[in-house]
Write a protein that binds this DNA or RNA. Structure first.
Lengths: 235, 235
DNA sequence: TGGGCGAAGATTGTATAAAGTTTCGCCTGT
DNA sequence: ACAGGCGAAACTTTATACAATCTTCGCCCA
């Protein structure tokens, strides 16, 4: 069968050029480099990634389905701007799903996984130590994704990937800047609980971690009349 | 602004022809008219819905993202064939999400909603009474979607739509035919609990309903050695 | 001077055509 | 008679061209 010995000359597109576009945009959003409302022009992205508009379009459609890109008819694609209501839904969903995920993670614990988790924690600490905010926020999200992978539950993994990407936008939009940083501690405590096979503690730690993240947010209610103006100007 | 007074001649597809294709295929799957493994050719669908392959392709990509269609490279799109492992994941996710949804449904209860639920129950009963299996299975799925709409939680609604469509395929593949039918009773009991604002009862009823559906399934374990052959032949 | 109308430019939506891959049938050789 | 390989047809994938739509800028009029 020969297993296709390099059928094309420049076929280094490991398994899809559209994946490269999608993952590239997702990473940029996770690192807070792409701001909500940013226009994602098809020609623009096509030139960046060396792809035709057809491929860019499919990538944008996938991102739209994940809720991190809005496609407006005859206007184009824009990085999503979650509303406070969206934010509350996202975090409620995370509070529901993630405790279950850590349950499964405890069941799947193994030396290899413990090792990978510890390594991730080290990366997080290092990024925060050198004040690399972009790497820090990306790694923080990836930690939750790692637990979802560890759970071995592909549906939860897909759901959570979506929720994490949205959370990144939400944190960027609504985080208050007067709060102390203590996220890494929580992650370490979760890993400790997992290592000790203590499901109850792991669930509790995860829940309080999520509650703390949400507590750091300032989700302005639609009751405030200044919101009217802010919404219009925010475009 | 004139609100576009019919700009095109055949533009009766108010906001998307791709939605028609997507919803059409989804409905066919929900009604067990499309069987797992069925090939969904682009030309074929394009002719059926009077659309070009470009639009068919976007619809198929959306369905693939929802997990009810598999797109194989250079082969085409096929109706998904969930594995027993997939089935267990789907129902675990439903057992997690749906009790929470009915919680929200109780909070959102109103005469209009009660009316709509009762009307739906009547439709279900009528379909089952006249032995219309297709309508019956479709309405049974739509009931759960209705509760998700009622919860007002758009994320849960999106997740559940996905899970319901997959469940339809799973039930088609793995349901044992030697079980009595009693699904409608459960639905009615759930509505009753919602109407009485009894969250605990509603959650319990929903959970036992889901457990019963899953109990009617025969999910052959990978332990059986005949599976090896069946997997290969099953393609 | 402010607002509204209109044309030019830019961008997206759709369709069609070219390119590459798989599959199936047929033929040849043993 | 059967296995293996060549070749054509069908399909998907990708790219490009055209059409429709929206935005923007300039001009005119009140």
């Amino acid at each position: 069968m020969a297993a296709k010995p390099r059928p094309k000359s420049d076929a280094r597109d490991v398994h899809d050029r559209v994946s490269r576009i999608r993952d590239g945009v997702t990473a940029a959003i996770l690192e807070h480099r792409l701001l909500p409302g940013t226009k994602l022009g098809e020609d623009e992205l096509g030139e960046i990634y060396g792809a035709s508009r057809t491929l860019v379009r499919t990538a944008l459609q996938q991102l739209a389905h994940e809720g991190i890109v809005n496609i407006e008819k005859n206007r184009g694609a824009f990085v999503a701007r979650p509303t406070p209501a969206d934010a509350r839904e996202v975090f409620e969903a995370r509070r529901l799903i993630e405790p279950t995920i850590v349950d499964h993670a405890v069941d799947a614990v193994s030396p290899a996984w413990i090792n990978r988790l510890q390594q991730h924690l080290a990366e997080e600490r290092e990024a925060e130590l050198r004040g690399d905010a972009r790497a820090s926020v990306r790694l923080s999200g990836e930690f939750h994704g790692l637990l979802a992978e560890m759970s071995g539950h592909s549906i939860y993994l897909g759901f959570l990937k979506e929720l994490i990407a949205r959370s990144s936008l939400i944190i960027l939009l609504y985080r208050r800047h007067d709060t102390p940083a203590c996220g890494t501690d929580h992650h370490a405590e979760i890993v400790t609980a997992i290592r000790k096979h203590d499901k109850q503690a792991a669930r509790t730690q995860m829940l309080s971690h999520l509650n703390e993240i949400e507590a750091e947010l300032f989700l302005k209610d639609p009751a405030a009349d200044e919101l009217r103006l802010a919404d219009v100007l925010g475009v």
